[in-house]
Write a protein that binds this DNA or RNA. Structure first.
Lengths: 200, 200
DNA sequence: GTCTATAAATGGATAGAC
DNA sequence: GTCTATCCATTTATAGAC
């Protein structure tokens, strides 16, 4: 899946470029749900006919594919960065901060990923990749437990899911202009996850 | 959720009763998504034709309506019970435990509620009811902050959303036969929310 | 690159026989 | 209470003119 840089530059006015279509599509998919959004809905939102839209993309599912690749690629890149850190504590904090960053910077695409139900081979493959990511996070939690950084009386998988339940919920409510500015968000989440709501 | 015992006894063989249809429908809606599930899919799952299915329910949306009423009713009842407790600490712990209980006991119906996008007047009304519930939880968090039970440097709305992100994620992964037995679940979640992952 | 027109399939829902 | 057959709107997607 090449990005815009790799594509042939258009001669005339760009008009509705592929990226505009993809961006609008992912936004609309998130507002209404992927299945509940028809190609007609999308064309209407863009002020185009369906036929014109199909000039830019091959299919509705292709749009989903591009978005999922972006979301999974972002999460996997964050994992690589976290794994490159030099202590278990930094690796765990790194993947939590990294996931928060990807969730906010690629909010629309990740939201789509988080709502998948596995209704097509494409979705099943994406869900498997997501599951691999989750397993790698669980390994980081387990490693932190071995160092005494995380309570050992909590199953590592359960701890991971609870923390990522918190993180993933960000796509449902976080707004950069809300009570938590973007540059503080990772710290707020990390503190809530590690220390909880109770004052120390 | 009454079992067959409470229903009017049918004369002939019970066949496919309304409750069976509702249960199967909600399960399938959760597996595939509400919009992605056709009435034909549901009929097939039940081993019926569409026509036979429509003998038991008026519409696809009616099934959703019944399920949402059950989920919202459960959450609102939990809120009333929590509000009846006698200290801010007990009220906050009460609604967290109560929500965990409702999420597990009415898992399918609550899952449906949590995935709504507001695609119809019915969904919009349900989302408004859900928002009212969230606001009442936020009030309990604010009250706990005033007593010094919850960190005051965290916005009450943000704290509520983070904790409920954790709680709501249960519908995605919690299984009674997993590492956390049902009777311990509320304690595990409450501890994770209040004290975090770090050993004290 | 956008349009009108249309194909082919599937969606939710109903009529009426048994 | 279940069936076959059908209605009509909408779905994804394509053909071909401009």
């Amino acid at each position: 899946m090449s990005t815009s840089a790799a594509r042939t530059p258009r001669r005339g006015r760009p008009g509705h470029a592929r990226d505009d279509v993809l961006r609008a599509a992912v936004t609309l998919f998130n507002e209404q749900g992927y299945e509940a959004t028809s190609v007609s809905d999308l064309a209407r939102r863009l002020g185009l006919t369906k036929s014109a839209l199909y000039h830019h993309v091959d299919s509705k599912e292709q749009i989903l594919e591009v978005a999922l690749e972006s979301a999974l690629g972002g999460l996997e890149a964050a994992m690589e960065q976290a794994l490159a850190l030099d202590t278990p504590a930094r690796r765990l904090a790194g993947i939590i901060r990294g996931a928060v960053r990807v969730l906010t910077e690629q909010e629309a695409e990740v939201t789509l990923l988080l709502r998948l139900r596995g209704n097509s081979p494409l979705e099943v493959v994406a869900l498997e990749r997501r599951r691999r990511f989750d397993h790698r996070v669980t390994e980081l939690v387990r490693e932190a437990q071995a160092e005494g950084l995380v309570r050992a009386d909590l199953d590592a998988g359960v701890a991971t899911r609870l923390v990522f339940g918190m993180i993933n919920s960000l796509v449902e409510w976080y707004r950069p202009d809300g009570p938590v500015p973007p540059e503080q968000l990772a710290d707020v989440v990390l503190t809530a996850a590690m220390d909880g709501l109770r004052p120390r």
